[in-house]
């Protein structure tokens, strides 16, 4: 089984156990993808985790963009901006860095 910083991840790099998450893990995952986490990245990651804590599910992309607009300003509350932060998709790559399960389906 693959791991990152000694914790188990699945074949696509998502944490097996949400409880294993730490900021160091997010940093290590981002480094693997050649991304240096900025304050804006952390806003997204933190919101994903907060929403998941409440609903046991990742927020819909529209909910995420609105939340980011509130936190970082209207010019950043859109999916183009979020894709610039997370080139593999704010939902998928964002959830991975946040230690959440991968959203799958017809998405």
């Amino acid at each position: 089984m693959a791991e990152i910083l000694g914790v188990g991840v699945d074949e696509e790099g998502y944490l097996l156990k949400i409880a294993d998450w730490s900021e160091e893990i997010a940093l290590a995952m981002a480094a693997e993808d050649d991304i240096e986490l900025s304050a804006e990245h952390w806003e997204v990651i933190n919101f994903l985790r907060e929403y998941f804590e409440e609903y046991e599910f990742a927020p819909a992309v529209r909910i995420l963009t609105k939340a980011i607009a509130k936190r970082l300003g209207n010019d950043k509350g859109n999916s183009r901006y979020l894709y610039s932060l997370f080139p593999y998709g704010p939902a998928k790559q964002g959830c991975r860095f946040a230690g959440l399960p991968k959203p799958t389906g017809c998405v």
Binding site: Y55, E56, P59, G105
Partner: peptide, 26 residues
């Protein structure tokens, strides 16, 4: 995996009812 979710939760995503309700209200 998707089929397991639809059988358990009712949709491919595995989106639970409160999240769905919240999204629709939004």
């Amino acid at each position: 995996q998707i089929l397991g979710r639809i059988n358990k939760i009712g949709n491919n995503l595995g989106m639970p009812e409160p999240a769905l309700r919240d999204t629709l209200l939004d």
